[in-house]
Amino acid sequence: MTGFLVLFRRELALAWGRGGGPLLALAFFACTATLLPLAVGSQPARLAAVATGSAWLALALASLLSLERLFAQDYEDGALDLLALGPAPLEAVAFAKCLAQWLAAGAPLAFAAPLAAIALGASTALAPLIFVAALAGGLGFSFTGGIGAALSLGGRRGGVLIAVIVLPLFAPPVIFGAGAVEAMAGGLDWRTGLMLLCAYSLAAVALGPFAMAAACRNALS
């Protein structure tokens, strides 16, 4: 257990620095909120219609951006050898890395998501739900994205491979999460969507580390 905590602290420090950490979230949403009105037109009605959806798009893309280095850095500098010979199994290593990634990049994105949506014209009443859904969705993004990051180890153009691998895995949380927020905005039942989103993310947390560890072992051999 101490081994796991030692690793988790280090991963958190690394994730905080990797790709800008929490600042990346703010920069990314600032870009989205600025560029979207320029791209689709600045009529408030039109912007409000796409506000929540664009927050989800930004969340998914920003998660993708920082994923590339999740395992690749350790693989290239030899640290993955060290991690594989530690007291905790590679499954626990993968879990620690993804959890740290979520705390350092996903959680700040979840804080920024309602701000961006409101700036684009979404109702402030939706803010709590957008936050909770982004938090849960970010967890799913981190643990499914980790699978793509681990599978792409050792390949050239790993970043492209990650995007292709995780795209289908990112679709369900976007559908459930954005669907829940849309449903609430339309006065419909939003709980089902949120629960499906949480179920998806928790399943990713439970199963993802096994896939990541298997992919890492394959890359190490």
């Binding site: 690793l7 280090r10 690394l14 500098d77 993955l80 050898d81 060290l82």
Partner: peptide, 30 residues
């Protein structure tokens, strides 16, 4: 996992962290 040290061509050090942080991590992890 408890009795082997492997030191390969790469040192497994993170370039953005200080030498002491990395040393302490590697030692405590092993």
């Amino acid at each position: 996992s408890g009795g082997v040290h492997l030191l390969g061509h790469h040192d497994g050090l993170k370039t953005t962290r200080t030498a002491w942080e990395e040393l302490l991590f590697q030692v405590r992890w092993t």
